[in-house]
Design a protein around this nucleic acid. Structure first.
Length: 214
DNA sequence: ATCCCGAGGG
DNA sequence: CCCTCTGGAT
């Protein structure tokens, strides 16, 4: 049960994030809403570096639902074989492309309810698309944010839904828009799962994680 | 609770 | 070798 950091401390923490990285961006490469949606779906349990390596070539060939269908499941597998869980992902992306054409006029829908009707698109993936493409106030909780939220006390919660609520409830309003990428980049490069780099952590002064001696 | 599932890092 | 990576469906 990690305690929740007080609001005044959260303001200091996010001010520090904002100072270090005024305009944080995601690192998944994409050229339009469709390629963003596909890239996020492919990124489940995979590094974005690995996803980018595969999608760089893939999106030159298939950057629309129509082209993805033309490529086909077997053709798609050839491109994403190096990413984990590739059979499920290939099947989902093909079915998702067909559904976009049949149900949404070939466009990526802008509501969570519509997005989550697509195969391979759950609440987390939908929230990433809503935040990054449509600039909606949606907080996607991935493995990094779940870990960072609980470890630091920024947004503790027993599951992803609880952490999502904690972010919405406790992160100062002026920082909500960029909170997702600040937290994810912090988790990826500083507050790593195995050997967190507490020695160079910019928010170490306020963190509740006991192993802040490294 | 389990399965999917390869690449990269320590 | 073992652990982790912007999860989702069953």
């Amino acid at each position: 049960m990690t305690p929740q950091l007080p609001y005044a401390t959260l303001k200091q923490i996010f001010a520090r994030f904002a100072e270090a990285e005024p305009h944080p961006k995601g690192e998944l490469e994409h050229t339009n809403a469709f390629t963003l949606l596909v890239a996020v779906a492919l990124s489940a349990q995979a590094t974005d570096a690995g996803v980018n390596k595969a999608t760089r070539k893939l999106f030159q060939i298939a950057d629309t639902p129509e082209k993805m269908l033309a490529l086909g499941e077997e053709g798609l597998i050839e491109h994403i074989r190096t990413i984990g869980l590739y059979r499920n992902k290939a099947k989902n992306v093909i079915r998702l492309s067909r559904l976009l054409i049949e149900n949404f006029g070939g466009e990526v829908p802008s509501s969570r309810a519509a997005l989550t009707t697509l195969p391979g698109v759950g609440r987390k993936t939908a929230n990433v698309v809503l935040n990054m493409w449509f600039h909606h106030p949606a907080q996607a909780v991935d493995t990094h944010i779940f870990r960072v939220g609980n470890r630091t006390g920024i947004a503790p919660g027993k599951d992803e839904a609880a952490v999502e609520r904690a972010i919405e409830d406790n992160v100062p309003a002026e920082y909500q828009g960029h909170a997702h990428h600040w937290l994810i980049l912090h988790g990826r490069y500083i507050c790593t799962a195995r050997n967190p780099k507490c020695g160079i952590c910019p928010i170490r002064d306020w963190c509740l994680y006991p192993e802040k001696t490294a």
